[in-house]
Simulated scan of single mutants.
Amino acid sequence: MTTRRAFGALAAGTALAVLAPATTASATPRHRRGRLIAHDGFRHGLGQWATELQDGGTVTASRGVLEIDVPSGATVWFKKKLEGPYVIEYTATPVSAGGVNDRVSDLNNFWNAVDVRSPDDVFATPRGGALAEYDYLKTYYAGYGANTNTTTRLRRYVGEAGVRPLIYDYAEPLLTANEPHRVRIVSDGSTVQWWNNGGLVFDYRDPAPYTSGHFAFRTVWSHFRITDFQVWRLFNHS
């Protein structure tokens, strides 16, 4: 069995402490959905989204599918700012059908993202899709099946160039080609969770949590089909 490494970044961002790893075994979510606060069924184009593409590619939304087919870095932002506590849910399928970009890799997300260069408007600072341009975010960043489907990691960006503090670093679980991955992201105060297909992948308690900001799909040289994007207020929260 592969040994997992789990790390918690300390406040200074320079030291690491060992944390108990999350488990991908069957688990019951403790955070129940309340009212729906945002959604996109991907039938009316990209009006709710903003794209940042490093080297072109295509991003389309039609017939119930957000399709991202790109040769390098791509970030697709949800334009509405989200305030916690909330739960994000969506389904993503990595396409492997012989296409030029059908590399199964990088089901990634930013959430509660704020750009320190324009903290009141994440879109006021232009970015071109290369990963280093996002170092100036304060955000959580999940990379599931990244690095050609060899790593699964959680980072907590602190808004400094070249500094991407690592929280969890796993060699599994990874992406399965042409299979749906049902993602659930929990932002509830200090509780930060990322689920896939009912398994708890990341479970982090942040002593200084990011509780609001923007969500994005992020990938690199890949082809994804995404459906059923929904954001829910947590049960018993207004």
Rank of each mutant, 00 (worst) to 15 (best):
T24D: 07
T24C: 14
A25I: 13
A25H: 10
S26H: 11
S26L: 08
A27M: 01
T28I: 08
T28K: 12
P29S: 09
P29L: 09
R30I: 02
R30A: 10
R30L: 06
H31Q: 12
H31L: 09
R32F: 11
R33N: 14
R33Q: 14
R33K: 11
R33S: 12
G34T: 11
G34V: 15
R35H: 14
R35A: 14
R35N: 13
L36N: 02
I37Q: 11
I37N: 08
I37M: 07
A38D: 03
A38P: 00
H39A: 13
D40Y: 15
D40G: 07
D40M: 10
G41F: 00
G41D: 12
G41T: 03
G41L: 02
G41E: 05
F42Q: 00
F42E: 00
F42C: 00
R43Y: 12
R43N: 12
R43C: 08
R43I: 11
H44E: 11
H44P: 01
G45V: 03
G45E: 09
L46Y: 02
L46G: 07
L46E: 03
L46F: 07
G47W: 08
Q48N: 08
Q48R: 12
A50I: 05
A50K: 15
A50W: 05
A50R: 15
T51P: 01
T51L: 06
T51W: 02
T51F: 01
E52R: 13
E52V: 05
E52S: 04
E52P: 05
L53I: 05
L53Q: 03
L53Y: 03
L53G: 01
Q54L: 15
Q54A: 06
G56I: 04
G56V: 06
G56S: 04
G56P: 01
G57H: 09
G57A: 13
T58Q: 11
T58N: 10
T58G: 09
T58R: 12
T58C: 12
V59M: 11
V59W: 08
A61S: 10
A61N: 09
A61L: 04
A61P: 12
S62G: 11
S62C: 06
S62D: 07
